[in-house]
């Protein structure tokens, strides 16, 4: 079992038409700065040795302009060296506008197979434990019921338009989990929900 490299994880999502936020591996401050036009962007250090990027201070958000991006890139690089995270990569991502954060994920249950989860995301996942779980594959009705089951349903679906969109996303994720037999765990967290769109900001796929 291992964490899939970001680009591989992203390409699996692409296969199921699950769009994740625009991102690019950057190997130098110049590359990062080029990607950062227009900003703002985020820079993240990815390493198998650091599963919790934010907790380890390996994520810098909201960067704009060449000098800010260069400084942040250099700082992350020296931190990665100091923490002995090699081999590591640095990824640049466009910043998503703010919105309601949800988590969509999956895991493999020894009894029932692939399970699909949606919950109030970001920092609230563990605090409120407000999530709904189903066995894959799910139907559209299952997806609707998952959303309705959440205590935070009204917060998450405050734009009426986002219900169908989130249900579509759940159905696509269910199909991914069902068909990709090698994937044992999946985290899309956070998925930021906007009026008519979403941004998947972070992906974790375990094989």
């Amino acid at each position: 079992m291992g964490l899939l490299e970001y680009s591989k994880a992203k390409s699996i999502l692409d296969k199921y038409k699950i769009k994740s936020i625009e991102s690019e591996y950057v190997t130098s401050a110049e590359e990062a700065a080029r990607f950062g036009k227009p900003g703002p962007i985020a820079l993240k250090v990815l390493s198998g040795k650091a599963l919790h990027k934010s907790k380890s201070g390996l994520v810098t958000l909201g960067l704009s302009g060449e000098s800010e991006i260069t400084a942040a890139f250099n700082a992350l690089q020296s931190k990665a060296l100091k923490l002995n995270l090699a081999p590591y990569t640095i990824i640049a991502q466009k910043m998503a506008p703010s919105g309601i954060e949800v988590i969509i994920g999956g895991r493999t249950d020894p009894q029932f197979g692939k399970l699909l989860l949606i919950g109030l995301g970001g920092i609230y996942v563990e605090a409120f434990r407000d999530f709904a779980l189903r066995v894959c594959p799910i139907t559209r009705r299952d997806a609707e019921e998952m959303l309705a089951q959440l205590k935070s349903a009204e917060v998450i679906t405050q734009h009426g338009t986002s219900i169908d969109m989130i249900c579509d996303l759940l159905l696509k994720t269910s199909s991914l989990l069902t068909k990709e037999k090698n994937i044992s765990e999946l985290d899309l967290n956070p998925v930021i929900i906007h009026h008519r769109s979403y941004d998947i900001v972070d992906i974790r796929v375990l094989e």
Binding site: D109, F112, R134, V135, D142, E145
Partner: peptide, 12 residues
Amino acid sequence: GNYEAYEAVFRQ
């Protein structure tokens, strides 16, 4: 098994 997985199956 994990209670939540069972609960998910029962609900579904």
